[in-house]
Amino acid sequence: MKKIALITGATRGIGKAVAFTLGKAGYTIMLNGILQEEGEETVKELAAQGIESELYICDITDENAVNAMVKEIGEKHGHIDTVINNAGGLGGRQTFEEMTTDFYRRVMALNLDSTLFVTRAAIPYLKKSENYPSIVNYTSIAAYNGGGPGAGIYASAKGAVLTMTRAMAKELIKSGIRVNAISPGTIDTAFHSATNREIMETWKSGIAIGRFGTPEETADVVEYLVSNKSAYLVGEVIQINGGQAFI
């Protein structure tokens, strides 16, 4: 039976690195993204390394679209073995004083609603897995420190994901589904593309290891969490920040 991994936001950044890492670990990858051309290029890159994948273009903030996508995957393959709720983002920066309700709802939808929508739809198919089914959610160092300037609502959303992870873990372990999370610090991806590079470089002084993390280092932790090597981890949050939280 093929091992099926659904990864949201998997056509760039950390999600793309996770797709390659899990693909090399023997998973067939269900790639989710919102850009057709970018997704098709990722499928080709995966195929060049012998990794089987399928592309599903879907806005994960759209509840009905998510339900349709997951149903299509689940009925085609009969099961889903792991869900990686990778999609998310700042959505921009606004202080609480100037924050519009539309901005607030957009950031919460991208980070929190999407985690619920994808997980909820996948649970019936995860229950059919025979390969130690698991879910990995993404919180953030921002959930602990409140985020940078204008990122307060992003931090709030990621804090909610952290709590949701632990609530899901308690509920779903009864069905044999483990739920854990990762909490990345400053990972060198396009996520920070809106930040001036010179400003970014100054952040290294606040990271004990003295450098930014890579998507591949993050993907390695995700691989561990979905493997049976982490069979006794339930509701755990692993910090991937190079000691950024210690300074």
Rank of each mutant, 00 (worst) to 15 (best):
K2Y: 03
K3D: 04
L6P: 09
T8Y: 07
A17N: 06
A19Y: 08
F20N: 02
L22I: 01
G23R: 03
K24A: 12
L31C: 14
L35S: 08
E37G: 15
G39A: 07
E40H: 05
E45F: 02
E45R: 09
A48I: 00
A48W: 00
Q49T: 02
I57V: 15
N64D: 14
A65C: 10
I73A: 05
G74N: 07
G78Y: 01
G78N: 00
D81N: 10
G89S: 12
L90T: 00
T95F: 07
F96K: 01
T100H: 02
T101E: 10
L116S: 04
A121F: 07
S129P: 08
S134Q: 06
Y138N: 12
T139R: 06
A143P: 11
A143E: 08
G146R: 04
P149G: 06
A151T: 14
Y154R: 04
G159W: 02
A160M: 05
V161Y: 08
L162W: 14
I177N: 03
I177Y: 06
G185E: 04
T189H: 13
S193L: 10
T202L: 07
K204N: 06
G206A: 04
G210K: 12
G213W: 08
E223P: 00
K229N: 14
S230R: 11
A231W: 04
Y232G: 09
V234G: 05
G235A: 06
I238H: 08
I240K: 14
I240N: 14
